[in-house]
Amino acid sequence: MQLHQYADSNELNQDFANRLIAILRDAIAKRGAAYLVVSGGRTPQGLFLKLNQADLDWSKVTITLADDRFLPDSEADSNERLVKASLLQQQAGAATFISLYAPTATAELAVPELLQRVKNLPTFDAVILGMGEDGHTASLFPCSKEISQGLALEAPDLLAVNPTTAPYQRISFSKQRLLNSRALFLHLVGASKLTVLEQAQASQDELAMPIRAFIHHTVPELAVMFAAK
């Protein structure tokens, strides 16, 4: 794990955007396409607003989410709604987006269709993770009965998750699929998140704090992008 600390979130977002743009340009130059996995919530919104203005051939970029709440994008708490409103704008409006929602009665019933959507995705070029105060990342919640499956080596690419400490059913990429990336980032803002990160570093128990699966991974090595404010 490499920790990159910044004076504030604006400085963080500018450097982070530059790094991601370089990764995407390199992928397009070498392989003709780029694949970016982002996270939802408030933390990445400033980053998205910098990324969407980048002079890049966005028509060759495919974007998806590490996880999403099982909600249509008409709902305010949908991560897809956030990504469409803040990232898939300006220049980045030309990118292809892969949704993790399908209109079924439950998240479990949506999984077969969603697995078909993502089955041909190659190694990701960059994955951006977030982290909760409980050490969850994506929707790999330590409180959920699905956590062992989500962290398993033989896990499917996507799974339905039913957290007991957070609202909504979720759809999440598994640990193994998220680790299948050329670059791996953890985006953190707030002093309390550094405390959680230090707690996670102190042990190997992934079931208690799933972020440990990524902190202790070596290839790719996790780059932590952190600002206290």
Rank of each mutant, 00 (worst) to 15 (best):
L140G: 00
N120D: 13
T106I: 12
A166S: 14
G130I: 11
L109H: 13
G32N: 12
S9R: 09
D134K: 03
R69F: 14
S192Y: 08
I128V: 06
H217C: 07
A17T: 11
T43D: 06
M209D: 09
R170H: 06
D77P: 06
R212C: 08
K30T: 14
I28M: 01
Q116P: 04
C143I: 01
S181Q: 08
R81H: 08
A66P: 05
G150I: 04
G46T: 08
A95Q: 11
D15M: 07
G150H: 00
A27T: 06
D57R: 14
D55N: 13
K229L: 06
P167D: 01
R31V: 01
A208D: 11
H217D: 14
N18F: 09
L49H: 08
A76H: 11
G135R: 01
K119T: 10
V118M: 15
Q169A: 15
S74D: 14
E221T: 11
R182W: 08
F16G: 08
Y35E: 00
E206R: 01
I23F: 13
G46P: 10
L153T: 09
L151D: 00
A223S: 15
H136L: 04
Y35S: 02
Q204L: 07
D77E: 15
F97Y: 14
A27Y: 12
A208W: 00
V83M: 04
R177Y: 10
